[in-house]
Each structure stands twice: as C-alpha cells, then as structure tokens.
C-alpha cells in the first residue's frame, strides 16, 4: 500500500537554554519537520536532533509512557512527550521544559533529584512493623480489593506533571505537590506500614503539605496515569485536619 495522504509540515518552537554554557540565554528556536504516520514527539524530537541540531537536550527512556522521564510543556500543558501523537496537535507545536524543577538544559529537567528529596522528606517507604523477615514462610494475606486500591495510587510514575501544573508549587518552594500527597495517601492505605495519622501529620500537616493545596486541582487534570488526585487530596486533608483538631 502506498501512502495517499499528504503529510503536514510541522513547525516546532522549542525553548532553548543551557545553563551550563557561558553566554547561553533562554530563547525560542524554530524547527520545521515533515510529519510521518504514527509520529510521536519522541520520534519528532529525535529526528530534529539527528538531522538538524545535535545540541538539543531532552529525556526519553522507555518511550512507552511507563517511566515518566519525558514530562514537558506541550503547547502550554504538561504531558508525556513519548506518547503524544503529533496528529493530535496543531501544526504549530511549542515545547518547553517543566517549570519548578531544576533545568538541566533545553527540555531536560532534574525531576530525579526533586523526587529523591521528596522521598527522603516524606519517608515514602513502608515502615515495617517487625524486625528481620522470615522469608521461608508464607506471606501475610491482604484483601484483593485493598491490594488493587494500593496499586492504583502506586501507579504514580513521578513524571512531575502534577507539580508543573500546580499553583501552590509556584508560590511555595517546598510544597510536596500532588505526587507527595498521593504517596502519603498510598501508605496510609497500606496495613503493612506502621505509621499512624499522627505520624503523617508531622510530615504533611502544614502549608508545605496538605494545607498548602488551594484545590485548583490542575494536577488531577494533567496526571498521565489518571490517579484520583482530587478525591485523595480532599480525603487526606480531612483526615490530617482531624489530627490537628485533637
């Protein structure tokens, strides 16, 4: 079969800035590209780098919407570039790095460091009750529905889209974001974690935590994994507020 459809000319405007390079200043750079069938921003950006501009920086790893590396502002909205098909975009495509995070260069930001800091602050691991495990014995049981509920919150890929879309994060440097709050919601659900709401209050019971959220909830709209952030944040705020009132 031959391809009968004429391909569009795509015009990319990409925010370029390399803080490592002396004299580099932020600017929008234009690239033209012929669209191809099934073209994603992953394919398009690689083509631009290979054929037009070897200095262009961006991050992809799995290119399958699983790893969370490629969050960027796509026509002003945070999203995963790898699974964004160009055919769903107008011919003018503006790409910029996610705000809030430290800029590595061009479209590449340091979400890794931000998420590691968050993990350390909120202690985002199961705080086990017992000491040494006996691995020879049958595992503890868990209700199948509860396991699935935990997994639904565990699906967060730490892409940073919710933070980039967050009004509070713009104003409060240390705000934990929807990613942080949904992680706490996840561990609250998990009976393997020995922590109580009083412990969680110490972690997120302030304006950098659950009380900082202004309920603008763009996080909910942009989450690539459709995590139930809206309900989780509201629920968590009620539970944590209850601790504060006591």
């Amino acid at each position: 079969m031959t391809d009968q459809t004429a391909h569009r000319k795509l015009s990319f405007r990409i925010l370029r800035y390399n803080p490592q390079e002396n004299g580099s200043t932020p600017r929008l750079q234009r690239y033209e590209l012929e669209e191809a069938d099934g073209m994603t921003l992953f394919i398009a950006l690689n083509e631009i780098r290979e054929q037009q501009d070897p200095s262009l920086q961006f991050d992809f790893v799995c290119r399958a919407g699983i790893c969370g590396s490629c969050g960027m502002m796509i026509n002003g909205r945070p999203g995963l570039a790898c699974r964004t098909l160009t055919r769903n975009l107008p011919p003018e495509i503006t790409l910029a790095p996610l705000p809030i995070f430290e800029l590595i260069g061009d479209l590449s930001v340091n979400t890794g460091r931000w998420m590691r800091d968050l993990g350390e602050r909120l202690e985002t691991w199961v705080h086990m009750k017992a000491g040494e495990l006996d691995l020879g014995h049958i595992e503890e049981t868990m209700d199948p529905d509860l396991a699935e509920q935990i997994y639904l919150l565990d699906r967060c890929i730490e892409c940073g889209c919710c933070v980039a879309a967050c009004g509070t994060a713009r104003m409060r440097e240390d705000f934990v974001g929807a990613v942080g709050l949904s992680k706490i919601a996840r561990f609250r659900l998990d009976p393997r974690d020995a922590r109580t709401d009083a412990d969680y209050y110490e972690l997120i019971g302030d304006d950098d935590g659950v009380f900082g959220c202004m309920s603008l909830l763009a996080c909910h709209d942009v989450c690539p994994k459709n995590l139930p952030l809206k309900t989780q944040i509201a629920f968590l705020r009620r539970k944590i507020a209850a601790v504060g009132i006591k």
């Binding site: 691991w125 199961v126 086990m128 495990l133 691995l135 020879g136 014995h137 049958i138 595992e139 503890e140 049981t141 868990m142 209700d143 199948p144 396991a147 699935e148 935990i150 997994y151 565990d154 561990f187 998990d190 393997r192 974690d193």
Partner: peptide
C-alpha cells in the same frame, strides 16, 4: 524466587491477590 516475592510483599509491593 519465592523468598524474593515474599520479601517484596513485606516491602510494600501491592501484589495482585487471590480471591
């Protein structure tokens, strides 16, 4: 391998469970 699954279960992996 069974020890690994059980360790991960204790570490919080939300393994799908039997009903």
């Amino acid at each position: 391998a069974p020890k690994a699954v059980r360790e991960l279960a204790a570490w919080g992996v939300p393994w799908s469970r039997v009903r």
